[in-house]
Design a protein around this nucleic acid. Structure first.
Lengths: 210, 210
DNA sequence: ATGATTTCTGCACGATCGGTCAACATTTTT
DNA sequence: AAAAATGTTGACCGATCGTGCAGAAATCAT
């Protein structure tokens, strides 16, 4: 089944191919439902070879989760005290919606992991996510203290942004079905960005009307 | 392991116990990861007895998904043309957040199913969910036409409400971890309702300031 | 009381799983 | 060129899975 001719020559390439395959399979079947042999088939190599590079299913899974976690973290770089709140939050929403479109599988893996109470990556939550979140909340509350935005709940604003942006990744299938069975077009993704920013940032802006 | 003394006497009771156990186990382990024997243990009966009442794992699963679907559908009864938009949407958000708290497992099962591209309940999406959604969009667009709310995207407003409310169910574990490891108190759930309505409905109201 | 029906349960089956291992191939180092 | 290190693979193991099934136990109908 696997076309052997396309075998990569070096470690870098082959581990990347395994990680890509693993992200999709973990997303579509869950941790328990994803089998190493399926990931291997998707990557076009034998099962034993996957085990050779990642030792165990759990270690491979941790790598996949770690990747999306790092990407999401970088997406919030614009959220700093010195930046304009609406601009910064708008950029954050745009970037996360781009990621929802380009990396939907990573988002789904994360969602699955949290739904199942983070049996594998609980340490991520307690260490990195917790401090990262507190830092962003401090920034948003500084914006409020400086009178730049309305006094909303910084924490729930973050949660709402996460929820809505990731919804377009995790629930892609539902959205597609409700879109007459066809994937969103470029135009529709543009409309989505506008609509989400319009809805969420209206509640943030100091003066209610543009 | 199972305390036989607490055996129910009639069909109604025992199937209800199985469904409750199944909802939790499917939520916490995914469809593939959930085993009938685990569900049986959770319900305090032998595995064979679960199979006796529900025949197959898939049929049991469909029953679980169908339940939460019906509950969610009823939660949107307030969304009609004659009702006040802010009141109706606010009630809808309140009800869905109550469900996020009281029935988090059902929400998680639904999320899992959609993430995995609805392999079991695709017919629900194409039949009931699609027409149901179109009906609500018609109502919201009538509100806009009547000048009762701002001209926002009805579809994306619905998606945003689904995303945020269900986020508090599906991502309970993440929220708890970010809440110093303890579940939200009654007071915090109240704050959550206010914050979500404040954020989302500001973008809907015609006049920006209360 | 007796027979019919429903409920309950242990056992066995084929399939699939994650992971080990030994044999083999290739590349790198000396 | 020989040795060492790294990469590749199929065969195999014990465990667990969903489900079929026969028969025991309980309930109901007559």
């Amino acid at each position: 089944m696997a076309t052997k001719g396309i075998q990569s020559r070096n470690r870098q390439e082959i581990t990347a191919r395994i990680l890509t395959a693993a992200e999709r399979v973990f997303a579509e079947f869950g941790y328990a439902g994803a089998s190493i042999s399926r990931i291997a088939a998707e990557a076009g190599i034998p099962k034993s070879n996957v085990v050779y590079y990642f030792e165990t299913k759990e270690l491979l899974y941790r790598r996949v989760v770690g990747e999306i976690f790092d990407i999401w973290r970088a997406a919030a770089d614009s959220i700093t005290v010195d930046n304009d709140p609406i601009q910064a939050l708008g950029d954050y929403i745009d970037t996360k919606l781009d990621l929802a479109r380009t990396r939907p599988y990573g988002s789904k893996v994360w969602a699955n992991e949290i739904i199942q109470r983070a049996p594998i990556v609980q340490d991520y939550l307690e260490d990195e996510l917790r401090s990262w979140t507190e830092d962003r909340i401090v920034v948003i509350e500084a914006w409020i203290a400086n009178g730049k935005i309305r006094p909303i709940s910084a924490r729930h604003l973050l949660y709402a942004i996460w929820a809505t942006t990731q919804h377009y990744a995790d629930f892609t299938h539902q959205i597609t079905t409700l879109n007459e069975g066809v994937e969103l077009t470029n135009r529709q993704w543009g409309e989505t960005k506008s609509a989400v920013k319009d809805l969420l940032l209206r509640g943030v802006e100091k003066h209610g009307d543009a």
